[in-house]
């Protein structure tokens, strides 16, 4: 089992439990989609799987070990709103190299143009920013990618572009992948296994 969540329980307030004893396992070589309407807890689960939040109960294992709390996380999350995942005060070149130094090959793979590096996020479109978020998260220690509604805010052409690029890299580097989406058609298109959230 590459990434495994065991008996995750989580609630924001005492009244309502968002995740109640949820378990999920993803094998090596699988590309899994998690489908469900918004507000059902998909995003919360992906934040927990990527180590952004700690569950009230339960554990997340990566490659048989507990997900590390400090240091570079092998599970990286690509977020729904790229503009929120990028420091608006930084030029994009700085954002890109925050985690590691991507080589030219990766920039070409991601379709990132040289002149974008000297711009501020506000001068780029969502699709262009999302490319930076992906490239930034593709460091050599990244073994698993969670895409949380990664292209929901983008138009369909950009969506298809971004997925084409990301899937190319994921295949090349043999990374594990979890796709969180509300769009079942998209899930079917890109994943080997589809899990419906309410049936978990």
């Amino acid at each position: 089992m590459l990434l495994e969540a065991k008996n995750i329980t989580f609630s924001y307030t005492k009244k309502k439990t968002i995740l109640d004893n949820v378990s999920l396992g993803i094998e090596k070589g699988e590309r899994v989609a998690l489908v469900g309407p918004s507000g059902c807890g998909k995003s919360t689960l992906s934040q927990i799987l990527a180590g952004y939040m700690k569950p009230d109960k339960g554990e997340v294992y990566f490659d048989g070990k507990l997900l590390p709390e400090k240091g570079y996380c092998p599970v990286q999350l690509i977020y729904q709103h790229p503009e929120k995942a990028i420091n608006p005060r930084w030029k994009l070149g700085r954002t890109l190299t925050e985690a590691w130094e991507p080589d030219q090959e990766l920039l070409d793979d991601m379709g990132i143009e040289k002149e974008w590096l000297t711009r501020y996020p506000i001068e780029l479109s969502g699709g262009e920013m999302q490319r930076f978020c992906i490239a930034r998260a593709m460091g050599p220690d990244t073994k698993f990618v969670i895409a949380d509604e990664m292209t929901t805010m983008l138009d369909v052409i950009t969506q298809a572009q971004i997925w084409e690029l990301l899937l190319h890299i994921v295949d090349k580097r043999n990374l594990g992948m979890l796709v969180v989406t509300h769009n079942p058609l998209l899930a079917e298109r890109i994943c080997t296994r589809v899990i419906e959230f309410d049936k978990m």
């Binding site: 001068e123 479109s125 262009e128 369909v156 950009t158 969506q159 572009q161 084409e164 998209l186 298109r189």
Partner: peptide, 21 residues
């Protein structure tokens, strides 16, 4: 036409480039 063809259910084929600013 490009929009239609980029939909996941109809080919998922993107055209290159981005919308100009």
């Amino acid at each position: 036409k490009a929009l239609w063809e980029a939909l996941p259910q109809n080919g998922f084929k993107p055209i290159p480039g981005t919308q100009p600013y």
